[in-house]
């Protein structure tokens, strides 16, 4: 069964591009356009990885990330943050909150796909 990626971003076009990339890389894709939708989508069954935008209406990426790390059933769920806020402070904040990686927009498509694949491989390998 192929792994599932949850893409969370309020920019429809970015979701569109990521969706295309992930599907092309062989993942199943679900999408959400804000933080609350994302959490709702995960309640059902957790995805294998979350691509999470930071600046979103109704619960931003940091809040979602915090929530994920608080819930035991989602422990170990990989989170990759995507943000257009390019400053180091923000990167560190994301990592401190428990994100596994941090990708700055605009990103290289190759890089995103590679990173996602790499994280998922590590997870599987690790346990």
């Amino acid at each position: 069964m192929s792994q599932e990626i949850l893409i969370v971003d309020d920019e429809a076009n970015i979701v569109l591009s990521l969706e295309f990339l992930m599907k092309q890389a062989g993942f199943q894709v679900r999408t959400a356009e804000d933080g609350e939708q994302a959490l709702e989508a995960m309640e059902d069954h957790p995805p294998d990885l979350v691509l999470l935008d930071v600046m979103m209406p109704r619960k931003n990426g940091y809040e979602v990330c915090e929530e994920i790390r608080r819930r035991p059933e989602w422990a170990g769920l990989p989170v990759v943050m995507l943000t257009a806020k390019g400053r180091d402070v923000e990167r560190e904040k994301g990592l401190a909150l428990g994100a596994d990686d941090y990708i700055t927009k605009p990103f290289s498509t190759q890089e995103v796909v590679d990173k996602v694949k790499e994280i998922l491989r590590d997870r599987q390998g690790g346990g």
Binding site: E11, N13, I14, L16, S17, L18, F20, L21, M55, A84, K85, G86, R87, T104, K105, P106, F107, S108, T109, Q110
Partner: peptide
């Protein structure tokens, strides 16, 4: 930071689709 964010957002789509189309 806001300007940067607002500039990067459209740029992200442009670059992403540019690369997708290219590849």
């Amino acid at each position: 930071s806001m300007v940067s964010h607002e500039l990067r957002t459209p740029l992200t789509s442009i670059r992403a689709f540019g690369e997708i189309l290219l590849n």
